[in-house]
Design a protein around this nucleic acid. Structure first.
Lengths: 200, 200
DNA sequence: TGGCGCCCCTAACGAACGTTCGGTAGGGTC
DNA sequence: GACCCTACCGAACGTTCGTTAGGGGCGCCA
């Protein structure tokens, strides 16, 4: 098994560049549309050489998803720590901004995950789903806490509301251009819309 | 070119069943994950026979997307007619319900379109994009009209709000189970959240 | 009854796929 | 100088891909 035991041993950054290229290709063409020879070409090696770093193509895809979730969780933690003790609305805004940061500021991994996870092979999905659930559980706990504290309107279906918010945030990758748009503004808009709605 | 000149000439429904199966497979595996032999197997014919009904695989995919957009537009028209003269909030609710109806009540076409369009081959995307834009323009005009009438809060970024609403609606296909959940409730929740927000 | 068009078939094509294999250049260790 | 390990290579494997060529059965109309 020619897999590196410790991922940190990657002196030339090839393993990392394989993951980068794969994540970009997943965003463009979906999981099934990614070919090893394409990945290898972007990295500057041959397809056979991928097997020095990973045991199979599915393992590369799985590593991309794992990293994508990892990025989201780190962004969550950083936002939670930064806004500890702040108002509910401030904390919510920070977590929305953090999620968008994961999508646009920290590489293509999170975007690859949220856009392509659903169509990935079953084996890959099953291996990743516990990590996914853990991240969603943080959101569920946070919003549940807000509801318990009376910060949400009576009768708000917290589960559905959370999924609608996820939908609004995750589909930004389909149209938002991080190079031209303002990510702070985007986060503020989504936060305000989720919190107050659009009605006059 | 063994393509039927008139799509309505499809007495045995094979053409329609090809589109059905393709749309389902697109939802499951993405555009690049669909193989002609899988489509044919679901229909009960051989892969080569697909070429009696379509000139190429891309043409099948394009037809699926076109039908998906067609379904959305018909749902829009029906909702518009039914709520002509009603209150803004009632009309909005009807259009949201209609969009969800297109996603869940009228075959897999719209769901296939909204989940897979982005990763389709460029030639397919370019052929379909005018239809897409026309549908989005209806929403943009409707929401712009609401803003002009003072129904939306001052400073509401109509374009961004529309895209966030699209995201919330379209990602329901990833988690909502039409057989178990209540589509009316879902539509009400999304409408209320878009209009009023979740805050107490 | 003969022919014709619709609908589907079998067979096969070249290309691309993921993967495996044996090998080698270069650097570090004893 | 012998040995090993890392990182990569070219070549090839068997399979699956989209697509094409050619043919046959069946219903309809002359």
């Amino acid at each position: 098994m020619p897999v590196l035991a410790d991922p940190s041993i990657d002196q030339h950054g090839v393993r990392r560049r394989i993951l980068d290229s794969t994540a970009e290709l997943i965003i463009e063409h979906g999981v099934a549309g990614v070919a090893q020879r394409q990945i290898a070409e972007r990295v500057g090696i041959r397809a056979a050489s991928l097997y020095h770093h990973f045991a199979s193509q599915n393992e590369i895809v799985e590593a991309v998803f794992r990293r994508g979730i990892d990025v989201m969780e780190h962004a969550w933690d950083e936002a939670a720590e930064r806004t500890r003790g702040a108002s509910p609305r401030t904390r919510l805004a920070a977590h929305i901004r953090a999620h968008l940061s994961a999508l646009f500021d920290h590489g293509p991994y999170t975007a690859a995950h949220v856009t392509a996870f659903r169509t990935a092979p079953a084996t890959v999905r099953e291996a990743v789903v516990p990590m996914r659930d853990a991240y969603e559980a943080r959101w569920a706990a946070f919003l549940g806490e807000l509801a318990a504290d009376g910060e949400l309107a009576d009768g708000t279906p917290v589960g559905l509301s959370r999924l609608a918010l996820f939908g609004a945030m995750n589909t930004t990758v389909e149209w938002f251009d991080a190079d031209r748009g303002n990510l702070d503004e985007l986060a503020d808009t989504i936060t305000h819309q989720f919190w107050n709605g659009v009605a006059a």
